[in-house]
Design a protein around this nucleic acid. Structure first.
Lengths: 110, 110
DNA sequence: ATAATATGTTCTATATAAAGAATAGTTTAA
DNA sequence: TTAAACTATTCTTTATATAGAACATATTAT
């Protein structure tokens, strides 16, 4: 939950709730309810303020991890994509291809 | 601006505004005002709905790029490749597709 | 001790995000 | 050729995010 992450990082930084609220220029009452997960749907503006003060990415606040690391793509795939891009394959075309491929797979399954 | 990015990706996907709104389960009136930057502070819930339907990361919607420093391939392509991998497309199949595509392009050029 | 300051929590008030019309303009179909 | 189905935009309304106060405890200082 996002509130837990904010609170955790805040304490790690040695900030009090009031202190962070003041520095980030948000209401401490609201920050309080966010940290305790009473309210869980802050705006991007709020998140930007907080993430700036805590010096952490919004993405980290949202997911608790740096997203790129989860599934690495090997170099061979990277090169294939570069090749695709330079040979003029559009994303939409590629998407169509994927869709067609799925359809083909499902068909042979039955 | 975030609205421009949403609109751009939406069109790239071939979705109409109404269509995306319905699929993402948000009000089209609101999506409309977001895309035109009339309102610019959506909640993370809203962004999650949209990013899910557009199959792109929230981070991309926010910043228009992967925060990774030397990333030559853009986010959308990365996601497409991941999609391809998870739906069982092999590198060989992809190479075949590229070859076929080049052939097709050359053919229509003449 | 007690005043003063800092802590986080509950209130209440207000601004605005977001929904749900109704609207007008296009495209498709009968 | 007009009616149906879609397009996106403006309204109006409702829900809720956020602010700002008042509050209760806990620290710190005098």
């Amino acid at each position: 939950m996002i509130g837990d992450r904010i609170q955790h990082i805040r304490k790690d930084r040695g900030f009090s709730l009031s202190e962070l609220a003041e520095r980030a220029n948000v209401a401490k009452s609201y920050l309080s309810s966010i940290e305790r997960n009473i309210q869980q749907n802050p705006s991007i503006l709020f998140l930007e303020k907080i993430s700036n003060e805590l010096d952490v990415s919004i993405n980290y606040l949202l997911h608790g991890e740096q997203q790129d690391i989860n599934e690495p793509i090997d170099d061979e795939w990277i090169n294939l994509v570069k090749e695709a891009m330079s040979s003029g394959v559009s994303k939409e075309q590629f998407r169509d291809y994927l869709e067609f491929n799925r359809w083909k797979l499902n068909k042979t399954d039955e």
